[in-house]
Nucleic acid binder design. Structure first.
Lengths: 207, 207, 207, 207
DNA sequence: GATGAATGAGGATTCATTCAT
DNA sequence: AATGAATGAATCCTCATTCAT
């Protein structure tokens, strides 16, 4: 690799790196205080710079959440698409999706918190229409999975599929509110216990 | 009862009634747009008056959420305390608590949404310390119940109790985000299906 | 007139009156310092209020210039249309138009200054497209008049009509830059001398 | 001449050349969007560099307009002084001054536009006091010329000399607003037609 | 000569709140 | 009870300018 090549890569990479750092900081602060209630100054403080300086890197406060949420969703769909491409049976697919979800919470905790708290409001603006699209695609995928599972006997068929979907969705994503990346339970352990509850409930099994 | 007395009561009642109406409106708007993102003017618009006029009824924006959340919590604990006073076994108690929760969502949907989205941030201010207290009391009650149930064989004992607690808490309260008071399923029907999932999971039962 | 009627009129009129006063002040300041270089605070200072208070009356700084310019143009076209409706010969029409122009400068001096200095830039924005339309209509009217006059022998026909148009337009409107409403020469006197120069030039006449 | 000397001259000339190019660009942008409304970044964009880079060449934004306006005025007075030094009669002098003016507009169009739009505001700052001086000297020269012409019968004496002065000044310089250096009419042709209108008006001559 | 990142002052605008009527 | 006008602090954002590289 020539020095020139390395240089070019160096600055482009450095810039991307800086953006990523700043977005991480912003995501943390937005998640902690709420997007609307967070001032640009608070983000800048947390990043160790002046409020105006953030505008060298980002167009606006809105552009920041946008990038945060879009990044999280892209990552999430990457993981989901890999799961779906494997073509497992419904039960295995559900396991894999829940595991992928907790992995994503692990890697994007603040983004997930923001998504949970703000997407309802943000989606009203043109810029965030994609949040609604993602929600729709998400729901369709899950509902299809649950219907297939109910049809082939993997899941109970006496329950409202929409309700099952919301139940799983809400309990998984709400976990971002308390998940601690450095905590006692790693994401897989949480996923396992959640799956145990999803699948067999909290009652002891007969036999 | 003297006419004077009746008058006084009449106006006091009328006043309380007006406050309640305005709080309902405010709760709806706060829930829809987020507390921080909602302006007093938007609340006033929804109530058919000018922004300044709200200050005849309430001291501040903060006083409004305060009253909204306090009202919801009072109602919730009323219901919970009745359940607990009945002294049922853990399984029956859990059923009753979940039913009471969905009833409360039915009656206080916007307040619950606000609580879900904002209590994390609000609790930092002195005025809302009681939110933290309620959270603590809530958690202690649930954890005790789940521990008792695990001890006496009503619930599985291979699961992390903290996780069970969060799982139930999150899935129930998150339902405020989509619950439709005029929708197809009444609160009890939703409670029943949620209980079915909590207790036995979504897998078909053997035998 | 009933008291109620008077009241209603009173407040509506009072409001319109206040707006007009504030616009007058704003126009004066914009004309003096240039629109872009003027801060809202300077306008507010000149109006004896705080910057934020102006936003009770106007949506934005842009809305202020908009209203100032639109008001001036409406007034101008009122006057022009009355002249054109009279159906005079070209020479008389030209006299009347120039007189009407100086009258308008007399009544809207700051607005004319703003128009002269800023319309070129403002017209680029969607909101001010009407400035371009007015300019076009203005040019077409004048060019038609000068062509008719040249055709029927009222005006010289050895000159470029576009040039004649610009010559008259520029010299008349530029007068807003120095016209003093309380000065020695009333608008009609200035119009007369300008007309003398337009029509016969500054050379003495033979014979 | 030593190589060193030539080098120094070479770089000095190159530097002057670069400055001139950048000033041309800046003048164009300032004229187009207005000085106050133009950002340094816009100038830099037009020059194909970054905003910060301009500060290698110029001390400040103000220094740029300063240099632009001073250059135009120096050039203008060069031309005027040559005319005045020739000692022609008033009528010939006026012709020559108007021609020189249009030549200057041809060479410094953006600077003239800036001068027209901004000198009123700029002159308030210490740095631009010379704009006021130039204006004064300019007026005195023209008024003296018109008075001499009126006295010796070259010009009409029934008109207000101040008004004649403003009339000529405004119509000539306002032409910078529409003059097109590559257009149909060369500066001399425009000067001729303007002189025809100044001197004899737009009415046909008797006889 | 030029870049990229940052500064810091200031500008338009918003908004909770006040208060005379 | 409610209105209309205003306040003043805070917010997002812009931009001329600096400076290490």
């Amino acid at each position: 690799m020539s020095p020139r090549r390395r240089d070019a890569e160096g600055t482009a990479a450095a810039r991307a790196q800086r953006r990523a750092e700043l977005l991480d900081t912003a995501a943390r602060v937005f998640a902690e205080r709420g997007y609307a209630a967070t001032t640009i100054r608070e983000v800048a403080d947390a990043a160790g710079m002046l409020a105006g300086s953030l505008y060298y890197h980002f167009e606006s406060k809105e552009a920041m959440v946008d990038e945060i949420l879009a990044g999280f969703l892209a990552d999430l769909w990457d993981a989901y698409d890999r799961v779906l491409a494997a073509g497992h049976d419904p039960r295995t697919t559900l396991r894999a999706l829940v595991e992928a979800s907790f992995d994503t919470i692990h890697r994007h905790r603040p983004a997930v918190v923001i998504y949970q708290n703000e997407s309802r409001h943000l989606v009203l603006g043109d810029r965030f229409r994609y949040l609604g699209d993602a929600r729709t695609r998400f729901r369709e995928m899950w509902v299809r999975l649950l219907e297939e599972g109910a049809a082939d006997g993997a899941f109970r068929s006496d329950l409202d599929v929409q309700l099952m979907y919301r139940f799983i969705r809400d309990s998984v994503w709400a976990a971002a509110g308390w998940y601690d990346p450095g905590g006692r339970l790693p994401p897989r352990a949480i996923a396992d216990q959640y799956l145990a509850m999803f699948l067999r409930g909290i009652e002891p099994h007969p036999g």
